[in-house]
Design a binder for these strands. Sequence first.
DNA 1: TTTGTTGGTGATAACGTTTTCATATATGAC
DNA 2: GTCATATATGAAAACGTTATCACCAACAAA
Lengths: 346, 346
Amino acid sequence: MKMESNASSPQLPDESEAVTVTDVARLAKVSVSTVSRILNGTARVSADKRSAVEAAIRTLSFKPNQFARGLKMGTTMTVGVVTQDIESPFFTRVMKGVEEALSKAGYALFIVSGHWDAHEEEDRIRLLAARRVDGIVIITGRLEEHALRALAQRQPIVVAGRDMEAHNVRSVCYDQEYGGFLATRYLISMGHRRIAFITGVKDHPDAQRRYAGYCRALQEAGLHSEDVLVQQGDFTESGGVLAMTRLLDSQEHFTAVFAANDQTALGARMVLHRRGIRVPDDISLVGFDDLPAAAFQTPPLTTVRQPLFEMGAYCGETLLRMLGNNVPERELPGLELVVRDTVRRI
Amino acid sequence: MKMESNASSPQLPDESEAVTVTDVARLAKVSVSTVSRILNGTARVSADKRSAVEAAIRTLSFKPNQFARGLKMGTTMTVGVVTQDIESPFFTRVMKGVEEALSKAGYALFIVSGHWDAHEEEDRIRLLAARRVDGIVIITGRLEEHALRALAQRQPIVVAGRDMEAHNVRSVCYDQEYGGFLATRYLISMGHRRIAFITGVKDHPDAQRRYAGYCRALQEAGLHSEDVLVQQGDFTESGGVLAMTRLLDSQEHFTAVFAANDQTALGARMVLHRRGIRVPDDISLVGFDDLPAAAFQTPPLTTVRQPLFEMGAYCGETLLRMLGNNVPERELPGLELVVRDTVRRI
DNA sequence: TTTGTTGGTGATAACGTTTTCATATATGAC
DNA sequence: GTCATATATGAAAACGTTATCACCAACAAA
């Protein structure tokens, strides 16, 4: 059966459906110009012709060919979204915000993934450019600033999770240092003194800033950070598993762990459970991001909330404005500590 | 600053970059036909002209306009993917598989979301059709079969998580009834007799099939399903919370819960934790899907694994074949029980 | 020399829109 | 009744590609 249908259709199923404005015009007994005018509301036409055309459009179920339109108008009503991992809850949360803002305005989204590889990322962005997208939203990419600047000559770019200003480039980001500070200060306020830290991806700006916040909070409390309590993670669950294992095996004493993001915290949490160490009774844990899943952990995870969805929506709306749409600027909520059940007072 | 740049650019940043084949032809001192021939390898051209054209393309950094090409050729090298929730781990796992298969073959992905609303879903699919995508992958949509059949006249469709056969339509799905059976039989084999079930979205075929499997396993063991132990869920965490709460409040006795998917299980798990009920010591729990997060729950969740990524890749490759590409057929692994730590023998 | 057969090339006609320009008709002012 | 002025319409020219056709060499076969 599969073979049969496979062989039988050398893909011309739509040939019967090649309905164009000319067909509509012919059926409605008007010129193509008139049809186009009605389609775009670009001039007034008499009521009778209008209804005739609308009827024709309906009976033929005509949809204007976006390619022809894009070719003629130079605008594609399409924007590209660049992510690193189409599956990561962090990225999808932001993407959902972007989608919300843009699809409402009639834009379609090309979603491409750089898979954390700068080379692949650049490649994908080129693909977007070749498809003449009207704009691009990049979610914490790995591209250099100058590359971004060059890209921005073709179409406006908004980048989330980075701080840069250039012609045709806007950016949104939260104060990651402050977030790290917030989490650590909270742990200190709950009586913790020896606080371990599991870092994010090496060299990633966000990871570095959160670490800086951790250090500052320690310092302001008269404590000092100890290298032996800082372990390298990579923003993934399994990275958290590895780091937590090293921490435990080091035999160092600590009463709390601050993980650079929620996924890392989840990995760490699992190792603790495996070893029979209770959270928060034996060790306290705080994460970062407040992913939707954080609230459903056992126990629910205390974490620093980044309004990711709002950030995505903000990006989308900013792009819309750069594209000439009139969208009001959105108030962006800040970082905020969400206290749940993984920290104990000692 | 924002105002300034906002006002200054009524979006014509690429006007300087409007380089076409004509420009290339002029610079290389050949005709546009020759340029096109070189671009597509559609006929042989002399070596000297070829190198001249290639040099021109490089110096102008020319990228053929996909719109013009699409208009002329009727093929867009674009496929649409329709999901219900761009953020749900279930959908993103499948999507990642689709992306893997298709982007490798040079296709770009339009990703749209129906938000669980049949009306919106149809609307989005129309949008895809207007953009003349070469094919569509639908992940467990809500559309009626006849609507799908109509859509398939325009372009080939592959639908994941449904079982239907039609002209220009392929489908992949797992035996959900068997999955439900597998989970329930396992619980029975571990000595459980009173097993609660939290269902999925009402009327959703998968949800119904899993329930059927649950009933069959019970029956084959000489037990019978009791309505009071079956609670309505909706495939989300909060649905699981609600259902579990009702179950507990009903004062019915049961020793195990089978949740219609992992997200539901997570919600249920949280309620149990809140009430001080231990898993698996007091109550056993099994989920469905084996989402990446399931392994990182505490304790790690016993569940029925659906190879979602593989299913997505299979869909992508099937579509590729329907589009005339020569891709070998992939062996699709079946459902499988993944035993972790949330079920206790009694 | 004539005739056919290549292999390489350039004009030019599509593809399906939107937009400009010109034209016909109706409306009013003198 | 003539002239200006809207108002509605259609013909035709883009947009940037690819594909068809026709052409011109060059060369082999007669």
